[in-house]
Design a protein around this nucleic acid. Sequence first.
RNA 1: GACCCCUUCGUCUAGUCAGGUCUAGGACUCCAGAUUUUCAUUCUGGCAACAGGGGUUCAAAUCCCCUAGGGGUCACCA
Length: 468
Amino acid sequence: MESGVITRFAPSPTGYLHIGGARTALFNFLYARHTGGKFLLRIEDTDLKRSTKEAVDAILEGLEWLGLYWDEEPISQISRRQRHVALVKKLIEESKAYYCYCSPEELAEMRDLAKAEGKSKFYDGRWRDRDPANSPSGVKPVIRLKSPLDGETTVSDLIQGDVSVSNDEMDDMILFRADGSPTYMLAVVVDDHDMNISHVIRGDDHLTNTFRQLQIYKAFGWDHPTFAHMPLLHGLDGTKLSKRHGALGLAEYRKMGLLPEAMNNYLLRQAWAHGDDEIISLEQAIEWFDIKDVGRSPSNFDFSKLISLNSHYLREADDGHLVTLIKPILIENLHGKLDNRAFDRIKSGMSGLKERAKNIDELAKNAEFYACRRPITLSDKALKALDASGKSHLNNLQIELGSIENWSGLSLNDAIVKYAKKKDIKLGVIAQPLRAALTGNTVSPGIFEILAVLGKEQSLARINDVLT
RNA sequence: GACCCCUUCGUCUAGUCAGGUCUAGGACUCCAGAUUUUCAUUCUGGCAACAGGGGUUCAAAUCCCCUAGGGGUCACCA
């Protein structure tokens, strides 16, 4: 299916990939897949001072983690320098752009004046029609666009609708810096055009930039892509998302033990909805996603909802996959105390483990008792459960269990229930000491499941450990 | 400050385009109860919102205007 839709995600590699960026990528990815189009990647690395290789890697890693695969080799904006230079020269030749020799002092003056007059545009266009022959010596000029002086510019935005601004609100923007590098405004327009981007989906912090970009498209005589500006993600207090809100890089969430499925699902539901549907897989999202269903109001980041989604996906996840995810954590936490049957046990006990965990770290923590070599360490609470009466029950039970031939959850259940009946005690009276002996803790999956997973020999040995 | 955008439970949202079916629905959180060997899960129930004010209309969460609050942009950053 060829739809002609080409979207792009164009991060600047000046830091980690944050969740706002991840959502922008997600929406671009979804729209491209939904329409059978392409999803491209462009690294906006024109700011040499702040761009790093590490940041590029972090961004690519983050996208891969989320499963947001892009279609072609990522494009580095800096590699397109020649093209930018050639095009801006063309604008100069056509007198659609001009050299401006203003000093920083002059600019500061103009800025102050604009501030005093309460205007948002400050550059007065003083070099717009001046002959460069009159330029002061030794000053490297910038190149500015000759913006239209009157009329208005309208963005027909797929999310925001028609938004217009009067052209006299905008001054002549800089296209090329004095050091000969293109500004974002110029580069983004040229690259989106050259990459045949059909839909620019980005945060609405770019909405007002769009008016300026539209002027550049016009100067080149190019058709412009369709724009869709999505509302920003805010912190829980309603202000812009920042490090203060614990809204860290994607990698941090990954480290916290979150699943990419949960992250995608959470991000998807910020400013987008499909009726009352809450649990939506990436496949389902591809089928349902449309820009027209994206809302216009910003949303506040809510960690507890993310967590609840995460527990959901954890319960749904494949047991073997979860084992591979917690393996490195267990190996690190347990050092040499790892039993050689550890991961077999965890795999078979996974169904009981995963419904009790909210994230990968917790899952690993809860799985430790399966992974540990005897004798296991007992928590204070476990010690308390192993009082005299608890131990005497365990002593009796040791014998009962020892005689069981068919060691399965069912037969163990029968045997222990029978024992409780015989002694006229509640199941909890014997279950808690047993749990303490087997897991070293007072909280765990079901006791029969644990016995079955541990196996007869290991179970009896652990019971014996606390009795001697 | 100027320009632009936004405003439904604490949070994410449905409903707004095509006004009546909305005494406003779902989810998360929280509270209560049930199930249970612990914890968790699950289940049942509950609290909780149309920012405010004017209009238009037989009828407004939905259309119009004003006010307030919030956000974004205004770099030789992207």
